[in-house]
């Protein structure tokens, strides 16, 4: 069984490793750009973002750290739109890793302090079970995000879904509206869940 301290250290290190990877990836891509003013601007922004991430980690300033990560992602996307070709698969991979880093950071903040304490075996088993469920969900979301987008791109490139058509634009707009409706109806979904569970409690009369 993995020591709890190793688990806590891994939870702390994983998002840092991913963010370092993303920053190095962006910097590596920018090495291919000739030294122009706009290129230097992007490089400066990237270094600023990286410095903000380091500052935020060192001095426990979450807002600075988040702003730094946003700057790194914007540098990558902006640099690839303006100066470099934008490879959809690489960009999707980059964005998925960035979202994964954010989710792992939240996971680490929740679970790492618990793993640093002395847990009894039953509690430890339950905490590990909850952690495994969360990690599985994150991996599923990343896979769905990457492969779903890649499939969409393949369909578009193969001509199965025509890109420049009113139908496609309508479909995209409908998808956006559906997401917004889903988010707006979230509180209603929660209330219905709660009402259903209270009805089940009423039905289960005590012996």
């Amino acid at each position: 069984m993995v020591s709890t301290r190793v688990t806590a250290a891994a939870l702390d290190a994983a998002p840092v490793f991913l963010v370092a990877l993303l920053s190095a990836w962006t910097f590596w891509d920018f090495l291919a750009i000739p030294a122009t003013t706009i290129a230097r601007l992007f490089l400066g922004t990237l270094l600023t973002g990286f410095a903000m991430i380091l500052l935020g980690l060192r001095y426990a300033m979450p807002s600075v750290r988040r702003a730094g990560l946003v700057l790194v992602v914007l540098c990558y996307v902006g640099g690839h739109i303006t100066l470099l070709p934008l490879d959809p698969a690489a960009a999707l991979g980059f964005l998925t890793l960035a979202l994964g880093a954010v989710e792992l950071r939240i996971l680490g903040e929740r679970f790492a302090p618990i793993f640093r304490t002395q847990l009894d075996p039953e509690s430890r088993g339950r905490v590990e079970e909850a952690l495994a469920r969360c990690v599985l969900r994150i991996v599923a979301a990343c896979a769905m995000g990457f492969f779903g987008a890649t499939l969409t791109a393949d369909l578009a490139l193969s001509g199965a879904v025509p890109l420049r058509s009113i139908a496609t634009a309508l479909l995209l707009s409908l998808a956006l509206v559906a997401v917004i409706l889903l988010l707006a109806s979230w509180p209603l979904l929660e209330r219905r869940l709660a009402m259903r569970s209270s009805q089940e409690t009423v039905i289960q009369t005590p012996k």
């Binding site: 934008l86 959809p88 989710e103 979301a141 889903l182």
Partner: peptide
């Protein structure tokens, strides 16, 4: 830029899940 539109899909996947 359709690749930029594609970049909207991962956040939507997270929200949907």
């Amino acid at each position: 830029s359709w690749p930029l539109v594609l970049l909207a899909i991962p956040p939507v996947a997270f929200l949907a899940l």
